[in-house]
């Protein structure tokens, strides 16, 4: 698309939905009656009125035995213990950092729940408190794990593992948290030559593949001298545009779907993937391959 500018007309807009031939699940709207039976249990996103169970959010129904809950399509991130999140430091406070994680309230990262550089194990002294801004400052991106959920829904994070810590060069993209598929591993070294962290909170980090040896120095090293080669840049940009294409079509994001989208997008130049038609095409092709894989 080099040098060509595209201005589309709204009435010609392509429909981003890829669920054309398939059953579109029913979407409940707030106040809609889910069931009139009384034996069922009330879960998240529902309330009882006039003996009926009603939805309090717009979303899909989830049933586990007798428990009925409505999972909202668009929402802020509701943290759960053990989730891996990507977040941005917004504030440095006494013995803690405030982290933006797409949840309703800012999360906290306590000084005592980070690994000290070099992996030293000791009590945090006053000196460490003074050094806090050296470790992490406002605007820095981190990957972390949810350690605790407080009663008001705010999260306490920790980075006490060598895989967590400050993120270096790469790209951050934001999608709805509901689109991230739950799985054991959140850190993916894609075979195409880039690493992806799928944060449960909908923040996705794409960066060049890092050597595990280099990484194990500690979570606070950033190499600003390193110039990412153009080939890797192209891969990262392509993955970025692919994920945005999948997210636009409301497809679940996990390593296989990203890889499929990456392969299907090969026929387009990276910048062409910004066009709505190309985005829908990639999403459709990915959807087809995923259904094929499922049916096997």
């Amino acid at each position: 698309m080099s040098n060509k500018i595209h201005i589309g007309i709204a009435s010609d807009r392509v429909n981003p939905s890829v669920a054309l031939n398939q059953r579109v699940p029913k979407i409940y709207t707030p106040g809609e009656v889910i069931t009139e039976q009384n034996e069922l249990m009330r879960g998240h996103g529902t309330y009882e009125e006039d003996g009926c169970l009603k939805s309090s959010v717009a979303g899909l129904k989830e049933e586990v035995n007798k428990l009925i809950s409505i999972k909202p399509l668009k929402s802020r991130y509701n943290g759960e213990i053990g989730d891996v999140v990507v977040g941005r430091i917004t504030e440095v406070q006494q013995r803690r950092w405030k982290v933006e994680t797409n949840s309703r309230l800012d999360s906290v990262l306590l000084l005592s729940s980070v690994n000290l550089p070099g992996g030293e194990l000791r009590r945090r002294s006053a000196e460490d408190e003074h050094m806090m801004r050296k470790y992490l400052q406002e605007g820095d991106l981190i990957s972390a794990e949810v350690q605790n959920v407080f009663t008001d829904g705010s999260l306490s994070l920790h980075t006490r593992s060598l895989k967590y810590g400050k993120l270096s060069q790469g790209v951050l993209i934001k999608v709805f948290p509901a689109l991230i598929k739950r799985s054991k591993t959140r850190f993916h070294n894609l075979s195409v030559g880039a690493s992806v962290i799928l944060g449960n909170n909908g923040f996705i980090w794409i960066c060049p593949t890092v050597n595990t040896e280099e990484e194990s120095v500690g979570g606070f090293i950033q190499n600003l001298e390193y110039i990412v080669p153009i080939e890797e840049r192209e891969i990262i940009a392509r993955i970025r545009n692919c994920i945005l294409a999948l997210a636009q079509s409301k497809m679940m994001l996990f390593d296989t779907s990203i890889l499929f989208a990456f392969e299907e997008s090969k026929k387009y130049a990276v910048a062409e993937l910004l066009l709505p038609e190309a985005m829908v095409d990639v999403a459709l092709l990915t959807q087809q391959r995923l259904t094929l894989l499922e049916n096997q």
């Binding site: 595209h6 790469g170 790209v171 192209e234 940009a237 392509r238 910048a271 993937l273 910004l274």
Partner: peptide, 30 residues
Amino acid sequence: CEAEKTFILHSVEENFRIDGRQRGDYRPME
């Protein structure tokens, strides 16, 4: 953060921006 800025800075230098555009390219509009 500094690292993200560095990444963007280099990407502009290489004429391959973070979304794959060149320096003189526009995003599609509606």
